[in-house]
Amino acid sequence: MIQIDDTIISEEILENNFVCNLNACKGACCVEGDAGAPVEDDEVEILEQIYHKVAPYLSSLGRKAIEVQGTAIRGTDGEWETPLINGGECAYVIRNEKGIVFCGIEQAYNEGKISWKKPISCHLYPIRLKKYTSFTAVNYDRWDICKDACTLGRELQVPIYKFVKEALIRKFGNDWYQQLEEAKKLLES
């Protein structure tokens, strides 16, 4: 484990490789599972504010799920998460002509309709954050559906922390990320 400020980081994010392989998994992480993606407290208001700009990108089923449940819901653990369509996929998913799942929020962002990319938990994946009283744990979330991403990451030699660099900087800042890179160098020496 590595400590930077009030975060405790699993060395697994430095040691394991990962690059999403959407051609193989088709975006299964947005479809599989028994809960929506984690949403931070401050992101709940953002989702409410941007929804009218994101809604045109979503499927009719996604819009209906959000209209009934809200832009974010409390999960069984009491934490905020994205709503699901009939207990299945995330209400914010969209598909391309090949059936690959993408994020409707991110599509609106990519087209300049909004200035917020997507929930940080989605941007950070396969990293998951767990907040405790005095620190935040930064861990690698292993999931069977991502085996092709692990294979591609090994082939391309891209460690997890580099794959999610933009998201880590977005969450923790550039100085934090530079300290993480220094910690990696120290572990290699």
Score class of each variant (00 low, 15 high):
Val164Pro: 04
Glu32Ser: 08
Gln69Tyr: 02
Tyr125Gln: 11
Asn17His: 07
Asn96Lys: 15
Lys117Ile: 11
Glu67Tyr: 02
Glu111Gly: 07
Asp42Ala: 04
Trp176Tyr: 11
Ala24Leu: 06
Ile85Pro: 03
Ile145Phe: 05
Pro56Phe: 11
Val54Pro: 09
Asp175Gly: 14
Gly75Ile: 01
Val158Ser: 14
Ala137Pro: 01
Val138Asn: 13
Ser134Pro: 02
Ala65Gly: 02
Ile66Gly: 00
Asn23Cys: 07
Glu155Leu: 03
Asp144Gly: 08
Asn86Ile: 11
Glu48Arg: 04
Cys146Thr: 09
Ile114Tyr: 12
Cys90Leu: 14
Glu40Ile: 08
Asp175Arg: 15
Gly104Gln: 11
Ser189Leu: 08
Pro119Val: 00
Cys122Asn: 06
Ala35Gln: 10
Phe135Thr: 05
Arg154Phe: 14
Ile85Phe: 12
Tyr132Phe: 01
Asp148Gly: 02
Lys113Gly: 04
Val68Pro: 03
Glu111Ala: 10
Trp176Leu: 00
Cys103Pro: 01
Leu168Trp: 15
Ile73Tyr: 00
Gly27Thr: 03
Thr136Leu: 10
Phe18Ile: 00
Ala183Glu: 07
Glu181Met: 00
Lys130Ser: 12
Lys26Arg: 04
Glu89Phe: 00
Ile46Arg: 08
Tyr92Arg: 05
Gly33Pro: 02
Glu11Met: 04
Ile169Asp: 15
Leu156Val: 15
Leu180Met: 11
Ile160Met: 13
Glu188Pro: 00
Ile66Met: 07
Leu187Val: 02
Glu40Lys: 13
Tyr177Asn: 03
Glu166Tyr: 04
Glu79Ala: 12
Asn174Tyr: 13
Ile13Arg: 10
Ile85His: 02
Thr82Asp: 13
Val39Glu: 04
Cys103Leu: 05
Ala108Pro: 03
Ile169Pro: 11
Ile145Cys: 09
Arg95Pro: 11
Ala183Val: 07
Ile160Trp: 13
Leu47Ala: 13
Cys30Leu: 01
Ile94Phe: 05
Cys29Ile: 02
Cys90His: 04
Val39Leu: 13
Lys118Ile: 00
Tyr132Asn: 03
Ala91Thr: 09
Asp141Tyr: 05
Pro119Tyr: 09
Gly153Val: 15
Pro56Ser: 05
Ile114Asn: 06
Lys185Phe: 09
Leu84Met: 10
Ile127His: 01
Gly70Ala: 10
Pro38Arg: 07
Leu61Asp: 14
Glu48Pro: 02
Lys162Val: 06
Gln178Met: 11
Glu111Met: 10
Gly27Met: 04
Pro38Gly: 12
Glu11Thr: 14
Glu45Arg: 06
Asn86Glu: 15
Thr76Gly: 02
Leu152Pro: 00
Glu32Lys: 05
Gly78Leu: 01
Tyr125Glu: 07
Asp148Phe: 00
Asp5Val: 08
Ile160Tyr: 06
Thr71Ala: 04
Gln3Val: 12
Ala28Gln: 08
Ile169Val: 15
Leu168Lys: 13
Gly62Thr: 00
Thr7Phe: 10
Tyr109Gly: 02
Asn17Ala: 12
Gln179Leu: 13
